[in-house]
């Protein structure tokens, strides 16, 4: 299995390290032509405005949609969850979502950095007890459509969900050193 991590900006190295620790071959993707043989792509956390501008300048929008259509699974964390949504609430005027997953995501939903937090989450289907959610200027998932399953909630808001070949988490499993969510993505989203 080959998994790409979009490496335009943000915490892509931590995803690559977690994947490699799970024995998966991971590649930092900086150009669309690197996605040809990928089983999955992770869009990491970072600044969603910066990432979307670079995606658009280098032709990633069409390329990701095309590869996803051809079977490439996609997981977005934080900024990545914003970008893969059907609709972004509080987006910049020219910020376009990928529309890979029928979810609506609210940017900076919890406020500024002083409101960033960590808390334990009940993550559905995940063995081994609660998962430590690290939320950094995080979004939340305001609405999910048909065929999308909510996987985790915090304070009444959806913070993780999966669809067909898609997964979104508004927190950062890659910052915890706990590989269970990565393993879940590989086993339950990519493989199915």
């Amino acid at each position: 299995m080959r998994v790409g991590v979009l490496a335009l900006q943000g915490a892509f190295r931590e995803h690559i390290m977690t994947l490699e620790a799970l024995g998966v071959s991971a590649v930092a993707v900086r150009k669309p032509e690197q996605m040809g043989d990928l089983n999955a792509l992770i869009i990491p956390g970072g600044e969603s405005t910066a990432i979307s501008k670079l995606m658009s300048a280098y032709g990633f929008y069409d390329a990701i949609r095309q590869q996803h259509g051809a079977g490439m699974a996609v997981w977005g964390t934080c900024a990545g969850a914003i970008l893969m949504a059907e609709r972004i609430i509080d987006a910049l005027p020219d910020q376009e979502p990928l529309r890979l997953m029928d979810i609506e995501v609210r940017r900076n939903a919890y406020g500024r950095q002083v409101d960033s937090f960590e808390a334990d989450l009940e993550f559905k289907h995940l063995p081994g007890g609660p998962f430590r959610g690290v939320f950094i200027r995080a979004p939340w998932i305001e609405r999910i459509g048909e065929g999308v399953e909510a996987l985790a909630m915090h304070d009444g808001r959806i913070v993780a969900a999966r669809g067909a070949g898609t997964m979104a988490t508004t927190f950062h499993p890659e910052l915890t050193g706990d590989p269970r969510v990565h393993k879940f993505f590989l086993d339950e989203v990519v493989a199915s």
Partner: peptide, 26 residues
Amino acid sequence: MTENTTPQTGTLRVKTGLAEMLKGGV
């Protein structure tokens, strides 16, 4: 494992985490 769903702000991981998100940027 005891579960702690009370949000904790200002932890070292949350502080260094924002810097992690800025990486590769200007």
